[in-house]
Design a protein around this nucleic acid. Structure first.
Length: 237
DNA sequence: ATGGTCAACGAGCGGC
DNA sequence: GCCGCTCGTTGACCAT
């Protein structure tokens, strides 16, 4: 089986490439896919033996997408290719990390943790526990939570925007309808309206959308009588 | 080739 | 001063 070249020359990329290639090769073989799925799904077993890789090409037990550790690396708590970057530290010789995607299993575990709490609890206990569980560095867990919160906020902003946009469109439509209605009523306007009956003003609270009819005096106080039998004003409750 | 996604980072800020 | 956060950005990776 053909293997992709290691991206950063380290074991992690090699393992990642191995897995991706295996998955790619298995696309046309459903039974093999099932086997692989089961194989990948074992990765979270912290008691499992770290993956042994056959450099001749066959992954005897493939690793996670991002960071599978050798025994030594697991003990050190990091599998990163550059050793001088633990916890975001590093000196003048610091080299940039290659950006490697987290595996599905790692992401799922982090998602589950995020569902429970969107922030890591203090004293680094949770962070370290998750990091240990997933064979990641605590810094990676921290960054993942930061980015995840940012994504949540962005999604919410997009949702809010869509919601406001929809409301704006609805109001525009309603405005047009009312204008047309107004034109029709203007054409039918009867003078006795002004003399005998106070005009009805309709106030709609923009927050609760509740419409409240008011007296003519209210209408005058809030903007003056326009001479129309019905008008729409917006005012907070 | 290009645009989207996401891990990673640095700056800046506030709480303790 | 330290720590953890948000925000903006960068760069690797991936799908098209």
């Amino acid at each position: 089986m053909e293997l992709a070249l290691p991206v950063c020359g380290g074991r992690c990329s090699f393992l990642r490439s191995t897995r991706e290639n295996v998955e790619r090769e298995s696309k046309d073989h459903p039974s093999l896919q099932l086997e692989l799925k089961l194989s990948w799904s074992n990765e979270l077993d912290v008691n499992a033996v770290p993956p042994k890789i056959d450099r001749d090409g066959e992954a005897s037990r493939s690793s996670s997408t991002n960071h599978a550790l050798t025994d030594a690396e697991a003990e050190k708590g990091s599998c990163k290719c550059s050793e001088d970057d633990d916890e975001g530290g590093g000196g003048a010789t610091k080299t940039r990390q290659k950006k490697l995607r987290l595996s599905k299993e790692q992401s799922c575990y982090l998602e589950d943790s995020f569902k429970e709490h969107t922030t890591l609890n203090p004293l680094q206990k949770q962070k370290n526990a998750i990091a240990k569980q997933l064979n990641l560095r605590p810094r990676q867990v921290e960054v993942w939570f930061q980015n995840r919160r940012a994504r949540t906020k962005l999604r919410q902003t997009e949702l809010d925007y869509e919601c406001l946009k929809q409301r704006c469109e609805n109001l525009t439509t309603e405005n047009q309808r009312l204008r047309q209605e107004l034109q029709g009523l203007r054409a039918l306007r009867v003078p006795t309206h002004r003399a005998n009956a106070p005009p009805t003003a309709l106030y709609v609270c923009p927050s609760c959308e509740k419409a409240t009819p008011t007296t003519g005096d209210d209408g005058k106080r809030l903007g003056g009588y326009l001479g129309f039998p019905m008008r729409l004003k917006r005012q907070l409750c």
